[in-house]
Amino acid sequence: MLQKILRSCFILLSSAVCVSAAAQNTETKTQPEPKQKIIIGTDKEKVPVFCGLSVSVDLVGAVMKAINSNFAQTEAALRLNFKEKYFPVFELGYGFSDYVSEETDKCSKTNAPYMRIGMDYNFTKKRNGNRLYAGIRYGFSHFRYDLADASYRDPVWNQPLPFYLNGEAGNAQWGEAVFGLETRLWKFIQLGWNLRYKKRFSQHVSKQGAPWYLPGFGKNGSTCFGGTFNLIFEI
């Protein structure tokens, strides 16, 4: 009876780690309780300081690029693994946008690289490749952008004034709060996704207008939501 209660508690606690429970192994049904406790305890003792590194690519950006979305970004990340808990990460990407408003025919174009650095923290206890994590990022991009409003005219003084701003330099900095999970697909291959809340810290752009899209950030604004879907290779 006591064993059943303990087993139920363990399952409930595992489920409480919310979505990651879906990615957890369910071998607990067949294994006796004491043996499982020993395994977890041994894992904790054996975790080395440096557990390896991983590289990943974002699949969402590639899909967005393929379907001709208003903007897309291809991205790769290098992540270190310390004690299966702390994951310093460096992300490098390239953002594309060529947006034309259907209402006004005004255009905004930005193509530029971006980078982010940050850290993830893994909440799961087991070392089975399944992770539930939260993290922070600092993002930066230096870019050039074009703005165009070819049909602009002065209605009172009856003068056409096509507006073009070409190759204007700018930069932006932002922070991100990240929440995500990943699961082992096969040996060293993992699949994961994350959600990101982004807050723009600053942008330096022309006083005549800002780009519609900031590489790495998304649609220009004070805040933004984003996400990535990653194919991860652990080394």
Partner: peptide
Amino acid sequence: MSIKHFMSVWSAGLLCSAFVSCNEA
């Protein structure tokens, strides 16, 4: 990883990618 788990992760990921949006200017 079972098919059920695989589908859970994928559907959550698709939901995540659909959530890529920003505040309106």
